[in-house]
Design a protein around this nucleic acid. Sequence first.
DNA 1: CCTTGACCTTCCACCTGCTGGAACCCCTAC
DNA 2: GTAGGGGTTCCAGCAGGTGGAAGGTCAAGG
Lengths: 134, 134
Amino acid sequence: MNIGDVAARSGVPPKTIRYYEDIGLVRPERSANGYRAFRETDVHKLTFLGRARALGFSIENCRALLALWEDDRRASAEVKRIASIHLEEIDRKIAELGEMRETLADLVDACAGDLRPDCPIIHSLTSGSAPRDA
Amino acid sequence: MNIGDVAARSGVPPKTIRYYEDIGLVRPERSANGYRAFRETDVHKLTFLGRARALGFSIENCRALLALWEDDRRASAEVKRIASIHLEEIDRKIAELGEMRETLADLVDACAGDLRPDCPIIHSLTSGSAPRDA
DNA sequence: CCTTGACCTTCCACCTGCTGGAACCCCTAC
DNA sequence: GTAGGGGTTCCAGCAGGTGGAAGGTCAAGG
């Protein structure tokens, strides 16, 4: 199977597949003409990678998950551990973005958005106070 | 004022300040010895930048906001426009992370996390089905 | 006067995770 | 034979810094 077919079937773009080979996530064979020759398992691997990436797992986590995926004698605890840590990280990011959102929404709300130069957003970025009062 | 003092007062690390000079966000003078010589306004600018970055504004948005900050005749509408667009982007990111979180939380929840190899997380990444039932 | 240590300078490499493009090869169809 | 749609390699670049090496500067202490 050529890279284009694999890309179509796994949903991972050819460029990305080549990159994944580069960093050792997949190791396709080579045909006589120099083309990468993928097996069914490679398609499965890449699909797996695509899903893991879509859940926000880092490449390094993907590498670990892939190893566990390939290991019949894995302990599900290890998978759960990786996923839990990642989940916490996502929660942290959501919290961080949520705080940004709150502050920013308040500022946008407080700004008249007209032709006058006076602007609570600029003011807040300058002096660091949120426009809670006023 | 030397870069260390400015860093301490603005909260922006020296390395980052140099980088900001590199990309033209600040333009400190130079002392006879070659050291960067910052004025009070540079401290204010960097503080402004630090706050804007903390709110997640991109460097290019920061550049635009800085220009508006320096323009006495700005229209607050322009500031609000930039902030609103950024706010929408944050909302999109939060939504995206929220979806990841949901899926991942379900998976983590469904995983026994013991010594057995059977794992809904791995299974979901393999076959694409969430463990809604079971 | 010399040294020590904390500054400062520049430049270059690295991080994450790809993506775009150039220059080239291969294979099939017409 | 030639046009097209594959494939290949390698190099550069995105954001937004960060780390480190090699070296210059300056104030204080011996």
